[in-house]
Computed example of a mutant assay.
Amino acid sequence: MKLLARLAVAGALLASSAAPAYAEPITGAGSSFAFPIIGKWAQSYRVAKSDGAEMTPLDIGVDYEPIGSLGGEVRVTQRAADFGTSDRPLSSEELQRSALIQFPIVMGGIVPVVNLDGVGPGQIRFTGALLADIYLGKIKLWSDPAIKAANPELKLPDAPISVIYRADGSGTSFNWTDYLAKASPEWRGKIGVNTQVAWPVGKGAERSQGVTDAVKRTKNAIGYVEFGQVVRAGLAYAQVQNKAGVFVKPDPASFTAAAASAEWAQAKDFGLMLTDAPGADAYPIVATTFALVPKPRTRRTQDVLDFFRLSFESGAADATALGYVPLPGTLVKQVKDYWAAGMKTDS
């Protein structure tokens, strides 16, 4: 059964002209990584736009489907949605070809999760090379000497590792495979980086919730999921060794440390990856969710930009509470300037 999440929020926001009487929600689709924060922002937007009214029509607002980054890219490119979200930055050539703008909306961590007896959150440790070898099928048992060497204090079972991966076109997978490719030349040469790859071993699950559920019900499993969803599900997450050789616990502070190295002003169309960031405190698998909005500026695209504008201005605390890193003020200004430069009015 496919998951369809409908988020009803208040409708059009225009400061300069009166809104026409229409009751069609703006539509969005894509990242399940960012679905929790988009859902929260949608609720806040509804409250803000109700302006104290006792009732707001439910058919006016935002209709968002967390179908995965690839699905979001396809929907907005085909103009089957008013905006898409993706955890993969599109190239400037792709954006130009599809007449889209792209901007970051939130950042967060992707963490390895395990289902092992006696192993709690933050207790097991992995290097990037270990994770690559597990997902390559080269390390098959939890009792492998390489895993024991990184975890001498843990009692790990002499049992096969059950590998779980995202089966759908996923920006989470894009960032995961990008990190594995940076940690392992063999991974880069044999598997590569993409939203979907030919996984050598394991079983696939649809969307973030599917991976979460598969790991929870599978003894001796390993998977990868967005940090906030992991915490809310009560899964045991791992520390991961970063570029400085430090095993780092995933949390908003270590994600912020990784994000601090990003030179957004130098990146055309904000096309940056944050995996394997420098710094002793930086968590190495940090992803950015990007919004994709069609050009030119129309009534509906203006509604989309107004939704994200309000979210940036009043939703940073919500992002932090859910385990994400909100955009810093300087980056929000860059995004707004980018809107002004890239979105001409459809006259």
Results as ranks from 00 to 15, higher is better:
229 Q>W: 00
234 G>C: 13
123 Q>H: 12
321 A>K: 09
72 G>N: 00
95 L>P: 05
34 A>R: 10
334 Q>T: 03
211 V>G: 06
106 V>D: 03
152 P>V: 07
228 G>C: 12
342 G>Q: 12
330 T>W: 08
41 W>M: 10
312 F>T: 04
245 G>A: 03
160 P>C: 05
22 Y>S: 15
48 A>G: 14
152 P>A: 09
331 L>N: 12
58 L>G: 14
216 K>G: 12
118 G>K: 12
155 K>M: 08
133 D>M: 02
311 S>N: 09
275 T>F: 03
52 G>W: 13
143 S>A: 12
123 Q>Y: 01
130 L>Q: 06
33 F>G: 08
274 L>H: 04
107 M>R: 13
17 S>R: 14
94 E>R: 07
33 F>A: 08
79 R>I: 06
172 T>V: 03
194 N>I: 03
27 T>D: 01
105 I>F: 04
206 E>W: 09
236 A>Q: 10
49 K>Y: 07
68 G>W: 06
225 V>G: 01
43 Q>F: 03
74 V>E: 04
249 K>D: 12
344 K>V: 00
254 S>G: 08
135 Y>P: 06
243 K>D: 03
208 S>E: 13
186 E>L: 08
153 E>L: 13
187 W>Q: 07
272 L>Y: 07
310 L>W: 12
306 D>W: 02
29 A>Q: 13
113 V>P: 10
140 K>Y: 02
209 Q>W: 04
259 A>D: 11
263 E>L: 12
193 V>F: 06
176 W>C: 10
156 L>I: 03
47 V>K: 14
316 A>T: 09
82 D>S: 11
28 G>N: 06
273 M>Y: 05
102 Q>E: 06
232 R>T: 14
59 D>L: 13
26 I>M: 15
109 G>E: 13
229 Q>Y: 02
222 I>N: 04
314 S>D: 14
